[in-house]
Design a protein around this nucleic acid. Structure first.
Length: 426
RNA sequence: GGUGAGGUGGGUGAGUGGCUUAAACCACCGGUUUGCUAAACCGGCGUACUGUAACAGGUACCGCGGGUUCGAAUCCCGCCCUCACCGCCA
């Protein structure tokens, strides 16, 4: 959530920036927060003063008893009782105000970065880098990936339905090996780029889900194990960023660059049609994620660095891709700036989102209280960033479609050391 | 799942109702001394809110939430978590 101090300091700028998201009544919401914060301060000051008087009186009572002046002590007790009643009232008010303040803050999304274009739908996203080479031209006999999968027996969706339900693919043979090869390749590249590899828990508690903002905004997106009150992770971002929840990290060690492979579980309630065909949108998919904890002054350089990392992966895989700067309306609730990567899936003739690289600035770290000591020794919130490097299912879809030939599916050369085979054939 | 023990600052760990303003030690930072390093000595060393031009000052925090009391780390109740042993088990 946003920092109240920042809202107070830059009220007009915050309002103007939030309007790029196309949400209503921004000004009202912002001013409500400021008003509640004013109330909170007043109440805090008043209740603190009374508490201070109670503390003084209590000390005095102790002294009076010790020096044998029991009578005076008894009359003081009466005064304290009055004060306690009064402070009870203020404390209750204070608690209500704090809760209202927090509830209001949770409803305000992150302030978009100045470079974010105003806009409502994905049509308004800015293509910052379009594919300037030729798109793969496939012959008439070209098949979409769900037919290729069947032809070469790489993934079995029906088996997944039998075991779990729709949207839970079962990878088989070379399909499974290709999957594993991609995971290893992505992890190796992230490690080479300086990331520490993590294998986190795949189930998380509510506090963790709240930390990265999945709760309360995206509750319906996650699978919930009610018996133990745990959530299946929708992305490695959730457990990995929460490693630092509540910490004051060592400034000298920043930035922390982490990477993790995890399966990702998403309920995708309400999805239907061509969107969910084949591997386009599934309930369980594999992803390698990168998470960075950075000093505020470094975070946008790191964002660029992450974008460059993803660009290189896609280049090395030989997949046509484009990069989008998300507009205000399409930008995630907690993000300040997001670049999406889309690869072209030649048989479907569709662009598929395979990576989303975001800077959350202090929005997550404020909720999670991740801080560091700046040079003058003051605690300051860190910036958090994350990005997919990359999401597997759709990479596989595009790879199969783009690389199909009459004699089989060609494996990109960077993957050959990992797969151990050069093409997928009948 | 059963039984027991326990949760105190960055770490170890003392503290069973008011000289606790959380001891002491370690770690860390600064200083003195010093060929260098080390040692010794001195000082500093939590978080949040509030407050101030900046200091100062105030309040809260000893797992979490309630309660008793003029006063709670300390007493009472509930919850959570950790550890150990047993059972089951990759």
């Amino acid at each position: 959530m946003l920092e109240v101090k920042r809202i107070r300091k830059n009220r007009d700028f915050v309002i103007k920036s939030l309007e790029k998201r196309g949400i209503k009544d921004v000004e009202t919401k912002v001013d409500e927060v400021i008003k509640l914060d004013d109330d909170r301060k007043t109440l805090q000051t008043e209740s603190d003063e009374i508490l201070s008087n109670i503390n003084k009186a209590s000390k005095k009572i102790g002294d009076l008893f010790k020096s044998g002046k029991g009578n005076e002590a008894e009359s003081l007790k009466g005064e304290v009782a009055d004060l306690k009643q009064k402070v009870g009232f203020y404390e209750e008010k204070l608690k209500e105000t704090e809760e209202a303040l927090e509830a209001n803050l949770l409803e305000i999304p992150n302030v978009p970065h100045e470079s974010v274009p105003a806009g409502v739908t994905e049509e308004d996203n800015e293509i910052t880098e379009d594919w300037n080479g030729p798109l793969p031209q496939l012959g008439d006999e070209a098949k979409p990936h769900w037919e290729l999968i069947e032809k070469y027996d790489l993934v079995d969706f029906n088996l997944g339905v039998k075991i779990a339900g729709s949207g839970f693919p079962v990878y088989k043979g070379k399909g499974a090996v290709l999957q594993r090869a991609l995971i290893r390749y992505f992890l190796d590249e992230a490690t080479k780029a300086g990331c520490l590899e993590i294998i986190p828990p795949y189930l998380v508690n509510a506090a963790t889900a709240r930390g990265t903002g999945q709760l309360p905004d995206k509750e319906g997106q996650m699978y919930h194990v009610t018996k133990d009150d745990l959530y299946l992770i929708p992305t490695a971002e959730v457990p990995v960023t929460n490693i630092f929840r509540g910490d004051i990290v060592n400034a000298d060690e920043l930035p922390y660059k982490l990477t993790a492979y995890t399966p990702c579980f998403r309920r995708e309630a309400g999805s239907y049609g061509a969107d969910v065909k084949g591997l386009n949108r599934v309930h369980q998919f594999d992803k390698v994620e990168m998470v960075v904890i950075a000093k505020p002054e470094d975070s946008y350089n790191i964002l660029d660095w992450m974008v460059e990392h993803v660009r290189n992966l896609l280049k090395n895989l030989g997949l046509p891709f484009r990069i989008l700067r998300l507009c205000g309306g399409d930008l995630g609730f907690t993000s300040a700036l997001t670049f999406d990567f889309e690869v072209y899936s030649a048989a479907q003739k569709k662009w598929l989102e395979v990576s989303s690289v975001s800077n959350f600035e202090t929005y997550q770290s404020n909720r999670m209280k991740i801080r560091y000591k700046n040079e003058s020794g003051k605690s300051e919130l860190v910036h958090t960033l994350n990005g997919s490097v990359l999401a597997l299912a759709r990479i596989v879809a595009s790879l199969l479609e783009n690389n199909q030939t009459e004699s089989g599916i060609e494996i990109p050369s960077v993957l050959k050391p990992y797969t151990g085979f050069e093409r997928i054939t009948l």
